[in-house]
Amino acid sequence: MSSMESQFKIKFWGVRGSIACPGAETVRYGGNTSCITMRVNGHLLIFDGGTGLRVLGQSLLREMPINASMFFTHSHWDHIQGFPFFVPAFVPSNTFKIYGAVAPNGSTIEQRLNDQMLHPNFPVPLQIMGADLTFYDLAVGEAVEVSKGIKVENALLNHPGEAVGYRVSWQGLSVAYITDTEHLPDRLDENVLWLARNAELMIYDATYTDEEYYSEKSSKVGWGHSTWQEAVKIAKEANVKKLVIFHHDPLHNDEFMDQVKEDTANEFPNSIVAWEGLEIDVMTIGKEPPVILSAT
Rank of each mutant, 00 (worst) to 15 (best):
M1F: 15
W13L: 06
G14K: 00
R16W: 07
R16P: 03
S18Q: 14
S18F: 15
A24P: 10
G30A: 02
I36Q: 10
T37Y: 06
T37A: 00
M38F: 10
V40T: 09
D48S: 11
G49A: 05
G49K: 04
G49W: 07
G50H: 02
L60T: 04
R62T: 12
P65S: 03
F72H: 13
S75A: 10
Q81V: 14
P84S: 02
F85Y: 15
V87S: 14
A89W: 02
V91F: 06
Y99F: 14
G100P: 00
V102F: 01
N105G: 07
N105C: 10
R112S: 00
R112H: 05
L113S: 01
D115E: 10
H119E: 12
N121P: 04
V124S: 00
V124W: 00
L126S: 02
Q127N: 09
I128W: 12
G130L: 11
D132T: 11
L133H: 07
D137C: 13
L138C: 03
K148W: 03
I150H: 04
K151I: 15
K151E: 12
A155R: 15
N158I: 08
E162Y: 05
E162R: 10
S169A: 14
W170P: 01
G172Q: 11
S174G: 05
S174N: 01
A176C: 08
T181E: 06
R187E: 12
E190L: 11
A196K: 10
R197H: 13
N198S: 12
E200V: 05
I203G: 03
T207S: 02
T207V: 00
Y208K: 00
Y208E: 03
T209E: 03
S215Q: 05
S215Y: 06
V221I: 15
W223A: 12
A231P: 11
K233A: 14
K233W: 09
I234M: 04
A238R: 08
N239F: 09
V240L: 03
K241E: 11
K241V: 11
I245Y: 03
H248V: 05
D254F: 11
F256H: 13
F256E: 04
K261W: 12
A265H: 10
E267T: 08
E267H: 07
S271F: 04
I272Y: 07
T284H: 14
I285M: 06
K287W: 01
E288M: 08
E288D: 14
P290C: 00
P290R: 00
S294K: 13
